[in-house]
Amino acid sequence: MMTQPLVSVRDLKKHFTMGGPLFAPKPVLRAVDGVDLDIRRGETLGLVGESGCGKSTLARTLIRLYEPTTGSMVFDGQDVAHLSERDLVPFRRRVQMIFQDPYASLNGRMTVRDLIAEPLEIARIGTPESRTAKVHELLARVGLHADHANRFAHEFSGGQRQRIGIARAIALEPDLVICDEPISALDVSVQAQVVNMLEDLQDQLGLTYLFITHDLSMVRHISDRIGVMYLGKIVELASNTDLYARPSHPYTQALLASIPVPDPTATRPADPVRGEIPSAMAVPSGCRFRTRCPMATELCASSEPALRDIGGGHLAACHYAGEAAP
């Protein structure tokens, strides 16, 4: 893969300074704490991790809802990490987001037509008539009817609202769509409808997806490559096949072993990981997973493992990844 990636992130950090006692050093929450990540054109990159791992903060930083604390974020050749709002306008058209909660993310007082046309209006594209025609085209693309345009979002089911959110996200024909838990709020029988549609739209429009989820079954289905995040860092990144066949970071191994499998005859390991994710205000020294890791050594407490290639582009941040199991 010699072509330049669409997005190239290096040592990206987003820290939040929290309130604390007067005259005392304020605690710092290291939500995103040194992420290196390439997103290739036309791929679906899955990003998984538990709550508090920083995946949503990373997404919000990538679309520049947050300005990064440090690090670089190159989008199609341009570093957008510290651009001003004014200089961000062209970037904002090319990167869109689909949110988790289709009930909260759509303004209930706007018609579907106005919701979907709004990005076009803000970007001053077309006339009111041409925008309405575009809305009808977009509705057809997401499997809704033109006569839905004059109704309000609250008249629709969760799955239909998510379709409206998707139509809005693709209205400006973006290059990158960040999907932040886009199916988590939907019923199982409807999730598959939305995932199939996202895959169709990707084929038709050449979209690149960053797909953030905690659903480890769905992410395998939809992604080309998957990154695993823990406490603000990517700890493993590989093709979907490779990650599930050869999980090489002990955290990934624990995550995959924890998936509830819809098969009563499957054998299940006992608690694959102990304890809970530490606070991002008190990140452990060395390897950040060592406090829960069943194979941690003294080296893990003193030295932080780098994210390195353990073969065939499979990246893992563990001192012992790629070695035979002890």
Binding site: D187, V188, S189, V190, Q193, M218, R220, H221, Y244, P262
Partner: peptide, 21 residues
């Protein structure tokens, strides 16, 4: 049928239940 099979890594399409409850 509408949940992906973890043991199957062919990117075959999911089989949703059409419509809504």
């Amino acid at each position: 049928a509408s949940v992906p099979d973890l043991r199957d890594d062919s990117h075959k399409r999911l089989t949703p239940i059409p419509g809504s409850p």
